[in-house]
Nucleic acid binder design. Structure first.
Ligand code: MN
Ligand code: MN
Ligand code: ZN
Ligand code: ZN
Lengths: 137, 137
DNA sequence: AATTAACTTGTAATGATTACAAGATAGTAA
DNA sequence: TTACTATCTTGTAATCATTACAAGTTAATT
């Protein structure tokens, strides 16, 4: 169900976004590094390949991709945004010790609380926090 | 099931936190204004009564109350933190038009995804986004 | 009433994100 | 291919929320 890198190129075309070198590299990084990276991690990760890359471009690119629905921001961090390729629904668990963010399966779209019958729900996020197996030892 | 203001005083005592005027006023504001206010809203709301109040104190107070488990931060906003009296589990819905955050009933503690069997879960948040009934018109 | 650790306050520092303007480039059409 | 232009990238400066720090104040205990 995950999108291939070719699918992502097509997604950009569909949304009338240019396939700039920087955008494709950001998408490639997110595809190959499923760690919900911060802006800084993306910037540092790409800087080797693209020495002229500006951090502003990483911000601009991520904002454009989020607006286009291709990338999903993860706001489980209070102090800095993290990013994920928009894929099937899943929850996020943040370990308070190592800081890693783990995916977990959960059928979020099945939640339709009656309190929200008259609301238009566009987005559902499930964020858990605690300690991961590695850090419990 | 909601905590009374007197209960909150006792909670502070239990946690060995001083019952300073500013802390009690912050708790009173959160009790009386169930709108998940920002730091700035709390500051402006209390400034009438306490003209000497510093915004740093609002930050310090909220951090202390969050550490003590009396107040819960709501990080549905990417750009600024919001705060809620820690009470029974419930979900939060943010309207993308008016910006209001609504509570809704949902039994979050019942979610125990098998992917997290080996994780220690300390905190569960459910954040929905969309358009509220008022703004749908 | 005296004592003192904890708290409050104002100011300065920090750090993430955005605004802006000038130069570069992707995509299109001749 | 070449020319054109809207879009994109880049560096710098600005913004805004939050924290660090040091000096003065206060809640709670004796
Ligand atoms: Mn994920
Ligand atoms: Mn709430
Ligand atoms: Zn961990
Ligand atoms: Zn609304």
């Amino acid at each position: 169900m995950d999108l291939s890198f070719e699918d992502l190129r097509k997604e950009l075309k569909n949304k009338n976004l240019r396939l700039s070198h920087q955008r494709l590299k950001v998408l490639e990084f997110l595809t190959n590094n499923r760690i919900h990276p911060t802006v800084d991690q993306i910037y540092r990760g790409l800087h080797k390949d693209i020495p002229t890359l500006s951090k502003t471009t990483v911000y601009n690119t991520l904002n454009a991709l989020v607006d286009a629905g291709i990338v999903k921001p993860i706001t489980i961090e209070d102090n800095e945004a993290r990013y994920d390729i928009a894929t099937q629904d899943h929850g996020h668990f943040k370990c308070e010790v190592c800081g890693n963010i783990y995916d977990f399966d959960i059928n979020i779209s099945a939640f339709n609380p009656s309190d929200l019958d008259d609301f238009k729900i566009k987005d559902r996020d499930v964020y858990f926090r605690g300690i991961c197996p590695n850090c419990k030892k």
